[in-house]
Design a protein around this nucleic acid. Sequence first.
DNA 1: CGGAATCCATTCGGATACTG
DNA 2: CAGTATCCGAATGGATTCCG
Lengths: 136, 136
Amino acid sequence: MGAMQDSTDTEMAAAAGPCASIPAEHMAFIRQVLDRVGDKWSMLIIAVLENGPLRYTDLQRRIPGISQRMLTHTLRQLVEDGLITRTAYAEVPPRVEYALAPLGRGLHEIAMRLIGWAADHHGEILAHRSRAAERD
Amino acid sequence: MGAMQDSTDTEMAAAAGPCASIPAEHMAFIRQVLDRVGDKWSMLIIAVLENGPLRYTDLQRRIPGISQRMLTHTLRQLVEDGLITRTAYAEVPPRVEYALAPLGRGLHEIAMRLIGWAADHHGEILAHRSRAAERD
DNA sequence: CGGAATCCATTCGGATACTG
DNA sequence: CAGTATCCGAATGGATTCCG
């Protein structure tokens, strides 16, 4: 994967391995997916659902700081995209459970890696950030 | 991973393995990292830097749709957090190169997985989305 | 219990113009 | 070339109140 000439750039990108630079044709939907998944809460919701279905209030409890507005909103997006499922039981009091859909399971794995990485390296990141801040 | 009783729920979460539900203590900095990395462009920039250093205009070319404002802004955040490095060469015309820092390499791997997942499943996601839309 | 609706501040992010 | 500066609309996201 050495020097890269600018000739036949698109062909090279298509023929290269899985880790080559991103084909320009893919950029569009990568952006679409990232816009959905790369918001403040989606990854967290996906991550928290790993142990099975959770009710609305359980999700609220497990994700401190999220507002009802954002929880509801993000859940709807995720359901629309087929990443999670919503099951409402006709009882009183009403019960609604959210669970990972098959499509969401793949993303869940990535979410856990991201979270694991965040947990492992947040110290270094904060160190860098504060050093950069004091140099001003 | 079998049946789960509702007794001693919190204790179970604390004692469970590495993939168990997220420890509440970790939520804070997970959120901090996700807020930085989970924006519109960071992951894309990280991903695009895999083949070595890139100049400002190269980045702009490889990430269609990004504005100078956002490119500059996001690059600064990433440098501040120590995920990428910025090297300015005192030449005319000036040359500035951005590259993955060691800390950013770990994230790069995750970014590529996320992008790969997006490429693989964007069709299913769009299908779900349109079906949900037409059901209204 | 599980939301929907409204209001409002903050931030995101693009367009344009200008600079060293 | 590699940014900075300003303006402005759009989106994000929290607080609060209300509803089935």
